[in-house]
Design a protein around this nucleic acid. Structure first.
Length: 215
DNA sequence: ATCCCGAGGG
DNA sequence: CCCTCTGGAT
């Protein structure tokens, strides 16, 4: 079982089973997706989707959000992890979008990471989902699943190291899909605690299964 | 007690 | 590299 064989099996498995995988965040435009992804840090997508309708009703675009007062915005994100940081980041992000990018959400990783509250993972999500750029966002799920299956070296200790290995082996036109495949697999099958290995079709090539689970 | 589509700062 | 931020679900 070479690494190439493992990738081929995994890609074919997802193509056969969940070819339609996409983000579960609810959004209508790049601004809304950016806000949602910023809010999603250490928080479930379901909870983000519960809070964003009221948020977008009051602040539908970067212009309105840039003028938001911290004390007005805070209650709208209070049920999310790190509400103080995120409220501050959202207002700062909106201000920079207006002042530096003419009110348009930039669509390169280098520009996006300049925005407050936007790191490499968020920038990769935006450019991949909105613009189909072959950028692999490595979140907690992608990190865990990639290591468990054996898609990346155990020496890949950081999300960036995992990202570089994944994009090296995944064909460019599958990178966008592969992000969502690994996310959703991690969310529903290869969960952090007690992964559901016997519901998982990837177990024939999975290092974790071979090492820790006996049939 | 641990985890959820992380980022910023030291 | 480390730490802090910090609500809700399981």
């Amino acid at each position: 079982m070479t690494k190439k064989d493992r990738y081929q099996f995994v890609i074919q498995y997802f193509l056969d089973h969940t070819p339609e995988a996409e983000t579960e965040l609810v959004y209508d435009n790049p601004f809304q997706l950016l806000v949602s992804v910023i809010l999603s840090a250490q928080c479930t997508d379901k909870r983000v989707n519960m809070t964003t309708p009221a948020l977008f009703a009051q602040y539908p675009d970067a212009a309105s959000l840039s003028k938001a007062g911290f004390d007005d915005l805070l209650p709208l994100v209070k049920s999310i992890s790190y509400p103080n940081n995120k409220a501050k980041h959202l207002i700062g992000m909106a201000n920079m979008v207006i002042s530096e990018f003419g009110g348009i959400i930039p669509m390169t990783v280098d520009e996006l990471v300049k925005l407050p509250g936007v790191g490499r993972k968020t920038a990769n999500v935006i450019t991949s989902v909105i613009d189909n750029q072959p950028n692999m966002a490595v979140d907690t799920h992608v990190f865990r699943v990639s290591h468990r299956i054996g898609l990346v070296s155990s020496r890949a200790k950081t999300p960036y190291a995992v990202e570089k290995e994944l994009v090296k082996y995944i064909p460019e036109h599958y990178v966008h899909k592969a992000h969502h495949w690994l996310i959703l697999h991690g969310r529903y099958i290869c969960v952090a605690r007690q992964p559901k290995c016997f519901e998982c079709g990837i177990r024939p090539v999975c290092k974790f299964f071979k090492k820790n689970v006996k049939e």
